[in-house]
């Protein structure tokens, strides 16, 4: 007997799904903002000639790039509160984990971008009397950031997909909302199909935007990082 598809129970709960999507975007946005700032910090530390700065940054980057994000999330949610004696909400644990995790990846993007800027740009900036910090801020970063945008967009999309992991620590993101609806309505097939489609539409829209941006950069001849 063929299965009778029935989407009405899912649409009856569309408010829950909408709230879930909003929460997904909230975690993604917060982690992206913190991750970018932290990532730039890590990158500068790693590029530093002082070992006291470059080694710890290198260590954090390596650890967060080579351990699974779900293990990190569990560690920050279940283990850290016991060590530090603080209260941890699922939202906070998710933002902390994904900020540091994406910072580790962003740091490598920043580093590659900064290194890709020609040596002569530094020399020129120094020659007209700029300090290291000024040269970085006014000369090198503006050129580097333009080249890094494709890699950034890719990481941002990865980050959004990674945020589904918060459902496992019971934060009400889109996947968690879908799970709840599936259990309530006994319609897992329809609910999870709709959830997958929502992710697909949102992520495809973002990646189309990213492609548009890349094309525009390619026209202005700045897209050197593929």
């Amino acid at each position: 007997m063929a299965y009778q598809w029935d989407f009405t129970p899912v649409f009856a709960n569309s408010e829950l799904l909408a709230q879930g999507l909003l929460n997904t975007l909230k975690v993604t946005g917060a982690s992206l903002a913190c991750g970018l700032v932290l990532g730039l910090g890590f990158a500068l530390m790693r590029l530093s000639r002082h070992r006291l700065a470059s080694w710890p940054a290198g260590f954090v980057i390596e650890v967060f790039r080579t351990t699974p994000p779900l293990v990190q999330l569990f560690w920050f949610f279940f283990a850290l509160p016991l060590i530090a004696g603080i209260e941890m909400t699922p939202l906070l644990a998710a933002i902390v984990t994904f900020s540091i995790q994406s910072a580790a990846f962003f740091a490598e993007v920043f580093r590659a971008g900064i290194v890709s800027v020609e040596r002569g740009q530094w020399d020129g900036a120094r020659a007209i009397g700029m300090t290291n910090g000024q040269a970085l801020r006014r000369i090198v970063l503006p050129q580097a950031i333009k080249r890094m945008i494709p890699a950034f967009m890719e990481r941002a999309i990865e980050l959004m997909k990674t945020t589904t992991l918060v459902a496992t620590i019971a934060y009400a993101d889109l996947l968690f909302a879908a799970n709840e609806i599936a259990q309530k309505t006994f319609r897992p097939l329809e609910t999870f199909t709709v959830a997958a489609l929502i992710y697909f539409v949102v992520i495809t829209a973002i990646s189309l935007l990213a492609r548009q941006l890349e094309r525009r950069l390619a026209v202005s001849g700045e897209s050197t990082v593929h």
Binding site: I157, K161, A167, L175, N179, A196, Y199, I203
Partner: peptide
Amino acid sequence: NTPVLVQII
């Protein structure tokens, strides 16, 4: 363009 966890579930 969909998360792996959603696919697994």
